[in-house]
Amino acid sequence: MNTAEVKKKFNKKSVLALAVCAILVISIVLADFAASRSEFSDTTIAMGTVVSLRLFGSEGEEAAAAIEENINETEKALLSWREKDSDVNRINSSAGTAASVSTETVEIINKALDVSRNCEGVFDITVGKLTDLWDFGGEGQRLPGDDEIAEALGTVSYSSVKITDTTVLTADNQKLDLGAVGKGAACDRVRDYLSSTSTDSAVISVGGSLLLYGDRSFNIGIVNPENDKASMGTLKLSDTCVSTSGSYEKFFEKDGKVYHHILDAHTGHPADSRLSSVTVVCSSGTLSDALSTACYILGYNDSLALLKNYDAEAVFIFKDNTVRVTDGLENKFTLTDESFVIKE
């Protein structure tokens, strides 16, 4: 063979070798990619609500079981007003004297109090006596009398709550209700747990409050407040928490008037708002939960400064089907139901 022919042969061999290498590399990368996307999904009930999980990565099934336990633990040890030994229950039964609680509970309460300070207390976790009175979704659900409400309102005062690293002191007769931050707080604890697992990414819903974990970006659907059959729009997000407060979740009708469960801590009555729901995106689950309630009560204009304070963003859906989206979410929100209109 002369040099020209040798070169041609060498060329063909090297091309073949290159091609085989390329195919091998691509297959390996594809397989690894697919593995990190191998999904384990589950729907279960924990913390008195529906929990949906979608975990991507290895050992999804084990992680899912552990997450369920983690959420139940959060409820039992920290937040439940049913469990005798939960932190919240002990704080409430020793109202007037300091109760010794876990640092996690203190952290959650601290965040909630901070939000109260920044919204002049329209959102307030000391509304326990008030929520007991209305008992939305419970056996004693009813329209309380004005004097009853006034009496309960007398115990509502976030500034009376004093906390240290390990203790919480409420005023005499005061009752804490962490219902408005519970699901978000559960999300935060699940996030902490997940970082110790081999889960690559995940999206978890605790009764509608979401945890987005890992690099992967997810399409989050915002429920249509009118008929919750499908989403009215989607948010493309990653690595954050999302919570929604809406008047459609729990309500009752009496004498032609609708009473919903989001109580204004100033008036003791359901918040009088032009909004049907607010969805807040914030890196802290507890905050996203608290802020969604606060923003619903405050209304659109007064919410903007509050959200900015916590580096949070939101989607506001008004009762007249208009939608407003904060600047940070403009590029991430897509309307999918044309019966709604986005207002710039």
Partner: peptide, 13 residues
């Protein structure tokens, strides 16, 4: 529940 998604990965409500 009905399996699958309506082109969203999860709903917030």
């Amino acid at each position: 529940t009905i399996k699958g998604t309506d082109n969203t990965d999860m709903m917030t409500y």
